[in-house]
């Protein structure tokens, strides 16, 4: 990665002003994926001084500042309480602690990475994103949004739903990207089925979710879900294998969350 300048923003207004000055300016967050991409920037904008590294509880939701590290997110008792701890489990399987102490939850979500474990798990929960200037949208809306949001991700609001979950990151080695990842939750008597890294970005299988809610058999629901998704080949794994293992894990996951 190359950058001509590094700027420590003093407020969200200040950060947004700087971001808008030049299309080659960017928010750095943790900066892990930026290093991998190796692109050139004019000014990197750092949000470290803006108090966005807090996890706070309100009546219905947990507010997670976008600069919270994956490690602090994973180990937070508040996050572990949401739906049996799905988001905590998924974040805890990403690389090692020395990586997760740097990577941020905001960077992980804003990038809409197709391989993201964070996004797959959060999509199976009720998550709203807050941007600056003021704009709120659900995580699903954000993932489906065409084009780039011209704003700064400030916080995530995760609803404090109780429930059960299933999570499977299929990977070749402990530090690998997921070959496919599956998150299923049962919250408030409703099922949520998410498959990511297909290798496209995670999405909900809405038709299959309706069938699961109607009490259809897990095998039928898994088949419906697979039909809703597109799969593709990548260097690591073929699309047919991705499809096969996804179906198996969805079936197992549905049984698991209903136990």
């Amino acid at each position: 990665m190359r950058a001509k300048n590094f700027y420590r923003a003093t407020s969200l207004d200040d950060a947004y002003r700087k971001l808008s000055e030049n299309p080659k300016n960017a928010i750095i967050a943790g900066g892990l994926w930026m290093k991998k991409l190796g692109q050139s920037y004019d000014t990197l904008i750092d949000l470290s001084d803006l108090g966005l590294n807090k996890i706070e509880e309100s009546e219905n939701s947990i507010k997670v500042g976008s600069m919270v590290t994956l490690r602090n997110f994973e180990t937070s008792p508040l996050i572990k309480e949401i739906c049996g701890g799905l988001a905590s489990t998924a974040a805890g399987e990403i690389m090692g602690v020395n990586f997760r102490n740097l990577a941020t939850i905001g960077g992980s979500v804003f990038g809409r990475y197709p391989f993201s474990d964070v996004i797959t798990s959060l999509l199976a929960l009720d998550v709203t994103l807050e941007f600056f200037p003021e704009q709120k949208m659900s995580l699903e809306e954000y993932l489906n949004y065409r084009g780039k949001i011209q704003g700064i991700l400030v916080a995530l609001y995760i609803k404090k739903d109780a429930g059960t979950y299933f999570y499977k990151k299929v990977k070749a080695t402990a530090l690998d990207f997921p070959l496919v990842n599956i998150a299923i939750t049962l919250r408030n008597n409703k099922h949520y089925i998410v498959v990511g890294s297909r290798p496209m970005i995670a999405s909900l299988a809405h038709q299959a979710m309706k069938e699961a809610d109607a009490g259809e058999d897990a095998s039928k629901v898994a088949k419906t879900a697979i039909g809703e998704y597109s799969f593709a080949d990548s260097v690591a794994i073929g699309k047919d294998y991705r499809k096969e293992i996804s179906e198996v894990y969805i079936r197992r996951g549905l049984k698991e969350v209903s136990k």
Binding site: R8, I28, G31, L32, L44, S48, G96, N98, N101
Partner: peptide, 28 residues
């Protein structure tokens, strides 16, 4: 030098962190 092996680990504010993957400006 690709955020993978952990050999470059240092402690930043006491927490293990890959020094190959964090800018010096970020540890201000």
């Amino acid at each position: 030098n690709e955020s993978n092996c952990g050999t470059c680990t240092v402690l930043i504010n006491g927490k293990p962190s890959m020094s190959c993957s964090v800018l010096t400006a970020q540890v201000y």
